[in-house]
Amino acid sequence: MHIDLSGKTALISGSTQGIGLAIATGLASSGARVVINGRHEEAVVKAAEGIRTQVAGADVVELTTDIATEEGVAKALSIVPSVDILVNNLGIFGVKDALEITDEEWLRYFDVNVLAAVRLTRAYLPAMMSAGWGRISYIASDSAVVIPEEMIHYGVSKTAMLGVSRGFAKAAAGTGVTVNSVIAGPTHTAGVEDFVYQLVDKELPWDEAQREFMRLHRPQSLIKRLIEPEEIANLVVYLSSSLASATTGAAVRVDGGYVDSILP
């Protein structure tokens, strides 16, 4: 299967590390011009340089702005007026007892995890529809379906993302634009390493800590390991291509079998 995204521009929110960076690298490897986004210039520059080093001839645009604000989206539009591919990856998560999550924290999670994606979609979808081609992906989570008791505010925000994705897919019906969610399972990133050590013995070596975390807190996983970011990126690259032209309004799983369901 050959995926050629030459001539396409892709904006990936929150893409200086982890899943976002892996997606940006994967899209660049398929020929897309990629827009790297983060709040801190140093991190954006480092990520962009890493892609240019890894992918010969990569065309990378550096976008330093807080995409979770209206001002940040306006800045994005001023630098990159239109895109062919939008990947809503930006998100925050953290452990918190359900009864201790404040109103302010609930609102922050929805602002960053949901409304940032809504604003970007509102900003870029109309031009895609007019052009008759576009790809939008929302990076959701198994936590959208299996709400974790240790961070229900995160899980519920990802549930909302599934609904947002389906709704915008209907808004784009018949235009040549596809809109999908990607349900990512427990994934190995630096942030997740910190999260794992909040739940297991901090003295354990990483390999043991990972196995203990999966055994105690994610026993439904069928691969019995954390997923690597590149494995998430592979699916997003496919969904961003012309090969996925009949896949829209879907919640596509790359979760290692974590969600116990025979349906996608």
Rank of each mutant, 00 (worst) to 15 (best):
D194V: 14
Q220W: 09
E203N: 08
E193H: 07
D194H: 11
L204G: 10
R215H: 14
A209H: 04
H217V: 01
K202P: 05
Q220M: 11
Q198N: 06
Q198S: 13
R225V: 06
R218D: 14
V200G: 00
L216W: 13
F213K: 02
L222D: 10
S221K: 12
I223K: 13
Q198K: 07
L199Q: 04
D194M: 08
V200W: 01
Q210I: 15
E193G: 02
W206H: 05
P205W: 06
E208T: 15
P229T: 03
Q210N: 12
L222S: 09
R215K: 15
Q198F: 03
K224P: 04
A209V: 10
E212A: 15
E208K: 15
M214N: 11
L204H: 12
V192H: 13
E193L: 05
D207C: 06
Q198H: 05
L204F: 14
D201I: 03
L199S: 00
Q210G: 06
F195G: 10
Y197G: 03
M214D: 08
L226F: 15
W206M: 04
D201G: 03
K224S: 12
E203T: 14
E203C: 07
Q210Y: 12
W206Q: 03
Y197A: 01
V192K: 13
H217N: 05
P205K: 05
P229D: 00
V192N: 12
D207N: 11
Y197S: 01
F195V: 10
Q198V: 02
P219R: 06
L204R: 08
V196S: 02
A209L: 10
E193R: 12
R215T: 10
P205V: 11
V196F: 00
F195A: 15
R225E: 14
Q220T: 12
M214I: 14
Q210E: 12
S221H: 09
W206C: 03
K224Y: 07
R215Q: 15
I227R: 02
P229I: 01
M214F: 08
L199W: 00
D207T: 12
K224R: 13
D207S: 09
R211K: 13
